[in-house]
């Protein structure tokens, strides 16, 4: 299992990385959407990506749209992991092609449960 963590906060990338380490998931990181597209191209395929919304250069929503435009839907599952917590925003992200949506802050259990909804069963 391999995941891509996309967040402009290095402390959040580290925290998510530690959670994925605990769940036995290999991972790579990117600091914005454009860098993430490069990582996808160079180091892919990835089973899923955890995508922050508000990032410089290319934000999470633009990244989701770009991935869905250029790759087949089954290529990667996309989970928005963001502080954006308005219903309209969640609807917008799902409409753009995100598979799931987690609002920060969240727990390791919450991440595991959301991934299980996508058929990704990790950990004990």
């Amino acid at each position: 299992m391999k995941a891509l963590i996309i967040d402009d906060s290095s402390s959040m990338r580290m925290l998510l990385g530690r959670i994925l380490d605990d769940l036995g998931v290999q991972h790579a990181q990117a600091g914005d959407g454009r860098e993430a597209l490069q990582v996808l191209e160079n180091d892919g395929p990835f089973d899923f990506a955890l995508v922050d919304w508000q990032m410089p250069v290319m934000d999470g929503l633009e990244f989701v749209r770009a991935v869905r435009e250029h790759l087949p839907r089954e290529a990667i599952q996309l989970v928005m992991v963001t502080s954006v917590n308005q219903i309209e925003s969640i609807v917008e992200a799902l409409g753009a092609g995100a598979d799931e949506y987690i609002m920060k802050p969240f727990t390791k259990d919450a991440l595991q449960e959301k991934l299980a909804l996508l058929g990704i069963e990790l950990g004990p």
Partner: peptide
């Protein structure tokens, strides 16, 4: 609501 609830059902 982060716990186990599919986003489509949340909205």
């Amino acid at each position: 609501v982060n716990r186990g609830l599919p986003a489509p059902l949340l909205v």
